[in-house]
Design a protein around this nucleic acid. Structure first.
Lengths: 167, 167
DNA sequence: TTAAACTTTCAATAATTATTGAAAATATGT
DNA sequence: ACATATTTTCAATAATTATTGAAAGTTTAA
């Protein structure tokens, strides 16, 4: 395979993957591009390479910065801004896990806690509701704690976790 | 909070959550409804409760069956089909993790392996590409193995895993 | 074998979400 | 302070995705 083809494939794979960790296609593609770039890129360069508009680039870069996985970089003597991705895959994974937990899992836990605490009126529908949402609440809290635990480990968390688990 | 309100809240929370584990709103809402129902529901009942069309209900129920988390149930003496959710949260989580691994993670690993194996031509762009995609390949493989390991444990996998990890 | 009960399919349409582009805002060098 | 380079915002529009509903298909009971 040619480098150009491989690069294209990486960007598009990342793009469709992105939609499933909660970010849109353009955002994921920008991230992919920065992740494999040896040097920070300007907005102009990103627009050109991905064939997207200025507005689109601007908004999605902001999104990536909010996720904490892309940084603004200034080059001495240059007026415009440059952008760089977090390059360390472990740090990247940790950051994404942290944000997803904060944005999605924790609010869900709050709702589950609230709704599973209603008073039962004794009906089957009511009893089942309480039982099931309580179980889901518990599972989600445990999964979130597990995620936090795995991801807070300093370096190479996945590898280390696997080693521990196989003991 | 009233039961009715709590139920509504559960269905809508699950609905928006759904979009992030890769299934659409209607599908997630149908699942939520079945998950808290004390008895299997008919397609008619699902349509009514969620105010969706017959076609929509039919297609999304099929989707849920493909995910392996909803089953068809026949009641003796009844002509129509009924539907029931997997009720055990651990089994539910296991099934979802298994499917996501198969549908999303494994194909990604394949692509990463392929593109990270290109020959370097010595350019900085090329070297960086290979280095970064190799690192990503490794991380994804490890994360997938970890997921498989956690989820293959018989019962209460999250709890058990946490206990192990805190040792 | 027929008719009624029920389910699936899919083209048309509605709803949602992403993208553009140009005007407004902001930052920088002289 | 000004002119210019650069970035941001956001209403309009395009692209995508979900939903409907009615026709076609299937199953079952008699």
């Amino acid at each position: 395979m040619e480098f150009k083809e491989a690069k294209q494939k990486f960007i598009s794979t990342w793009g469709s993957l992105g939609t499933l960790w909660g970010i849109n296609k353009a955002m994921a593609q920008i991230h992919a591009l920065l992740f494999i770039a040896p040097e920070p890129l300007s907005m102009e360069e990103i627009m050109e390479e991905l064939e997207i508009s200025r507005g689109n680039a601007s908004m999605n870069l902001r999104g990536l910065i909010d996720w904490g996985i892309v940084y603004k970089v200034t080059k001495p003597g240059e007026r415009k801004e440059f952008f760089a991705s977090e390059k360390d895959v472990n740090e990247l994974a940790r950051q994404i896990a942290k944000e997803r937990s904060r944005r999605e899992i924790e609010p869900t836990i709050k709702v589950l806690k609230e709704i599973s605490s209603i008073e039962s009126n004794g009906s089957a529908a009511n009893e089942e509701f309480i039982k099931q949402t309580k179980a889901m609440h518990e599972l989600t809290e445990n999964a979130n704690a597990l995620l936090g635990r795995i991801v807070s480990t300093e370096q190479n968390w996945v590898t280390k976790t696997i080693i521990k688990l196989f003991k």
